[in-house]
Design a binder for these strands. Sequence first.
DNA 1: CACTTTTATGTAGAAATTGTGAAAATTACT
DNA 2: AGTAATTTTCACAATTTCTACATAAAAGTG
Lengths: 224, 224
Amino acid sequence: MERLKVLVVDDESRMRKLVKDFLTKSGYDVLEAGDGEQAVDTFFKEKDIALVVLDVMMPKMDGWQVCKEIRAFSQVPIIMLTARTDEQDELTGFKLGVDEYIAKPFSPKILVARIEAILRRSGQGNSDDTLEYAGIIIDKVAHQVTIDGQPIELSYKEFELLTYFMENKGIALSREKILNSVWNYDYFGDARTIDTHVKKLRSKMGEKGNIIKTVWGMGYKLEE
Amino acid sequence: MERLKVLVVDDESRMRKLVKDFLTKSGYDVLEAGDGEQAVDTFFKEKDIALVVLDVMMPKMDGWQVCKEIRAFSQVPIIMLTARTDEQDELTGFKLGVDEYIAKPFSPKILVARIEAILRRSGQGNSDDTLEYAGIIIDKVAHQVTIDGQPIELSYKEFELLTYFMENKGIALSREKILNSVWNYDYFGDARTIDTHVKKLRSKMGEKGNIIKTVWGMGYKLEE
DNA sequence: CACTTTTATGTAGAAATTGTGAAAATTACT
DNA sequence: AGTAATTTTCACAATTTCTACATAAAAGTG
């Protein structure tokens, strides 16, 4: 299991160090940024930051601005730190999609607790863990599929199979290939078991089922 | 190897810059346009744009309109960005021939992934899995043939046969040779079965069918 | 032009492949 | 262990593709 990355943005290096120590001890990988621009740069250079802790008051680019820039591309959870308990700020923050709002000074313990709560809640809401096409949404983390908003129940294999199709839409997949990818490499059974699974998948998918096309003499593919 | 050109259209320059940075890093040549009119101008001035990333909401001319104008002349893949998750929008988009639909905010990583998937699918990706000649495109991976942009349905043997012709265009192929290449070596049936397949191929290819010439007393060839 | 050879085409039956439902085997859950 | 759910196998039906064949059309030959 990989450690989750947290980006800590504050212009005071002492502050960053304190937070970093606590988070590192709690099992996170911590990246630092000393100002807003640096924060945005780091965020988009590193591609899998799980959460951002963001101070409001900073030189060059303040926290609100950083938040906006990040939100234009990402739903990553953001925790805002502010010295003031100004209510107006808090409102602005929620409008921008800030997930939590912690007033300085705060205890590092609380910060860690909040971070863990948020990550648990969002299921480490990495949007790369979802596949979407033609009204079919696959949530790999929750192991859940919805079609046009309606959740459908799939068995493990069915889920794996549909995921494989979605990850390779438009590509004709031979039974051999499917077996090697979805089944374990040590499977030596009948390839026709795929047919059966495709049949069940199609029927469970209702009228969307016909998106899985038969490529005669070859295998199957998910239509584009 | 030449870099593929991607046109990014958005009225926010900050947004364009971020997308551009990512795409440039991923090996694409990025052109920018700040509004719809500029987008259309740029698209038709540059003649080999491989893909367009298009924001819906823009001044002067919105994304749908730009899409229409481009589609009137070109089948270039289009990715639409929209802030709204309005389903109606999505429907309109697909009717206009939008290839992908990404809701803002999104992660640049996803955008790049989608772009690469689309280019790979449309065969423009840097792969030798596609054959192209005279408006006929064979996508070996998808096991799919398009003629002047229109996909046509071929059976397994027909697909193999056309692929063989395309790989040997301009070369007169004896029935013997064709049998040995397209059919299994243990085939001992009538060589005249090729005639039947050629007939079906020609008819399925419509007026492009006559590109397969008869070499009297010898076999067939794909005209060069 | 008559004649031979070769190719084109339509059709029907053969062969191959996939769809389907049910039963058997395996796995997961109390 | 007992039960339910899932996965796999299997047999046969349905479908698609392939091939053979008969006849028509076209091309070459003298």
